[in-house]
Every structure is written in C-alpha cells, then in structure tokens.
Design a protein around this nucleic acid. Structure first.
Lengths: 218, 218
DNA sequence: CGCCCGCGAACGAACGTTCGCCTTTTTTCT
DNA sequence: AGAAAAAAGGCGAACGTTCGTTCGCGGGCG
C-alpha cells in the first residue's frame, strides 16, 4: 500500500484548504451581521473551532477581511476569463450576467458581503487597494471587448470603449447593491431589461427579443 | 412682544436644530471610520458634548443611524422635487447629476456614509425599510418623467419607463459607490459619458456634444 | 424653588488577542 | 520496526480594552 502514489493523500486537509473553508464560513457569518458586529467567537462557533486554532490560520481579524476580498476577486476574475470568445459583445455581457447570478443563487451571502467590502474599502487602504486593482482588471477586460466588437463593426462608430466599460460596471454594481438591500428587487428582470438598454446605447442588436421581454409570447 | 409671532425665536436653538447638528457631525465622524468602528465617545468628542447630553437627543446608537438615513433621504428627495419641469428628459437627468455632485463637493463625507448605510441596510430591517421607501420614491419619479417624455415624443417608442428608471438608478448608485472607494475615479467625466450613453439607449438627443466629449473641439 | 440641561465617572458586557497546556501527527534515532 | 523526540494542531480560560449605556449630581434660568 505504500508503493501506490495516487492513493496517499494527506489524512488532514492541506493548510490552504482549511483556510478556504474558514473564509467560506466567514462569508456566511459576516453576511448575516456584518464584519464589525460579528465577533471572533461567533466565527469560531460557526467553524466548530476554538479561538486559538483560528489564529493559527489568520493572524488577526483584518487579515480575514483581506482574505475575503481576495477570494471574491479570484472567483469573479475566474468567471471573467472563462468567457466564450466567439459570441457577440452583448452576448458576452449576457453570459457574464448569467454566471454571476447563478453564483448568487448558490451562495446567498455573497451579495451582502460585497456591500460590506465596499464600505470597508472606503476607509481601509489595504482593502481599497485590492478592490481598485480588481476594478481596473474588469475595466480593461470589458474595454478590450468593446474595442474588438468595434473592429468587427458590431457597434455604432464613436462608442468610447472605456466609457462603455465604466457604464456597464456601474450599472452592474448598482443592481447588485440594490438587490442586496431589497430581496424583492427583481434582479433577473432588471438585468435583462438593462442589457436591452445597453444594446441600444452602443448600437448593437439586442440579445433576444427586447420588446415586452417576458410578459407574453404571441 | 408676545403678539408678534414672527420674531420670537427661542434664545437656545430649538431641539430639532440641535438634533440636526448632531447628525451633521455624525456624518463627518462616521464617514471617516464607519458606524461600528466609531464609538459614542468619539462622536461626543467631535460634538464637544458629554455622553449624558448626547443621550438626551438620541436614545441610542441605532437611532442615530436611522436619523442619518432619514436626513440623507430628505436631502435627496428635496433635490429631486426642485427639478425644473420644462426641460428635456436628458436635461433633467443632467440637472439631477449636477445637483448631486455639487453637494458631494460641499460635503465629502456623504459618499462614504451612503456606502455605510447600504451595507447597514442589508442586515438592519429598520434601515432597509427606510431605504426601500426612498428607492421606491425615486423609481416612481424617474418613471413618470420617462412617461412624460414619451408622450412628448422625445424618446424612442417601446422604451419601458420602469426599466429605464431602474437602469438609471443602478448606474448612478454604481458610480457613486465606485467613487467612494476610489477618490481618483473621474466621477464628473464618467457621469457625462454615461449620460450620453443613456441618451442613446432611450433614443433621445444627447445633452450636448456626445461624440468625442471632451477630447478636442474641431 | 423646580426644571431642564449637561456632565463624566462607573457599569457590565463584549471585543480581539494571547498563552500555557494537552493531544495528535510526523520525524528521527537506535 | 519500534521507541523517543519534535513539531503541529487544537483548546479555552484569561487579559487588558473598549463598547453602549446609565445615573447621581451640579449649575443656570424661568
């Protein structure tokens, strides 16, 4: 049984895995009550872990916050990189929206955490720096997508790639924030309609039927 | 002197005025470090007031938060109501943006406070209810503006008033949040460009020159 | 005098963090 | 291979602070 290399994983989960599990639990706990209203004891209880054990993985509460930002960033950037490259610009945006919303349904806490991170970034320079890089990355990505679509003649001439990217990001973040506040906000519907408006704004053909999007199908 | 009602203000500021001063100071203090990281002692120090005195005006910290939400809401709704009614839809939106940005320059803390309030609303039902009403009000207002513009034939047929209102609000909130995080975010420029894109989305004529908005004038 | 108003020390609770001790796993040495 | 040593992982009481809040008291004004 010793000569088989494939079936000898470490009995314990590797350190990185346990860190990840802590962060995932932290999302759930912090999303319910917020960073600063949630004590380490509550997080420990949710983890089934003692305070001393937790401090072996994170040197302090601040670093847990930073870890959360990093995790969200990695997840979103991973989603962005896995875009199908052969579809139209609006189709790509639609795909992005669908992936994001699928993940939101899986993990309800992500919305609230994102709002929490945003307000943390307004006063914590370390978090702000992480977020700025993140936004820069998305801005560049969407911007280049617009440029490519322009070269394909898919969009109206004169459309500014950077301005469009910023506009899309602002709309996206605004919808998500609003939904985080109000669970009855029809995010799916608003996203669909906004995509239609965006298509008109850049002079593209709407993704599917735009008029009367989901009222009735004659 | 008793029969003259107009010129007999109390020597001390009325209670409401002192409450207002407390809230305005709270905006400055909380914007720097956040609600939950700022103790009552800090707020008292900024006010030049003792804890006991402060508790005569607000029964607790939670009610200060609620007061802040209410104050912001009143301010924004006041701005919205004072719109000039005789200009185009896009012109009205431009006016709204300018008023908002003017106030942001006057009071730097408002941006951070808004972000703070948003994340507070995701878990504090009282705050969430206040904010929901607020959003509902704005949604209705913009929605009716779109309807009026549609009747004037100013916008493309088929534009959905509610969807447009939500789209505008999401973009607006997204821009503000982003600016709160990153002080180098060119809010003025993004707002101008977004307005242009919005105009295209609803089929209106852009507010001023849209193409190459501020690069060069041939 | 009665009455607001303001003060600031004091309260119990909860905070983030530390530390000494125990158990479990891994390594090292006969 | 098996015992001993070392390392790592986990625990939870305890620390010093700071939290939101209370309360008894004193001073100025009607």
């Amino acid at each position: 049984m010793s000569i088989i290399p494939s079936d000898s994983p470490p009995a314990r989960l590797p350190l990185a895995e346990r860190r990840r599990r802590i962060l995932e639990t932290a999302v759930q706990v912090y999303a319910q009550h917020g960073f600063h209203q949630t004590g380490m004891r509550q997080l420990c209880a949710a983890l089934g872990m003692s305070a001393g054990a937790l401090y072996r993985y994170f040197p302090g509460k601040e670093s847990i916050i930073a870890g959360l930002v990093e995790m969200d960033r990695e997840m979103i950037q991973h989603n962005l990189r896995s875009l199908p490259p052969d579809v139209s610009f609006i189709g790509t945006m639609q795909h992005m929206l669908e992936v994001t919303m699928g993940e939101l349904q899986t993990n309800e806490g992500l919305l609230a955490i994102w709002s929490e991170i945003s307000s943390e970034a307004t006063r914590n320079p370390a978090v702000a720096a992480l977020l700025s890089n993140h936004y820069q990355f998305i801005e560049n990505l969407i911007s280049s997508l617009v440029q490519a679509a322009l070269k394909r003649g898919e969009l109206r001439d004169g459309v500014d790639p950077l301005a469009t990217a910023r506009f899309i990001m602002a709309s996206h973040d605004g919808m998500m924030t609003r939904r985080a506040i109000d669970p009855t906000y029809p995010l799916q519907q608003v996203a669909r309609e906004s995509l239609g408006l965006l298509a008109c704004a850049v002079g593209a053909t709407p993704p599917v039927a735009l008029k009367t999007p989901a009222r009735k199908q004659p």
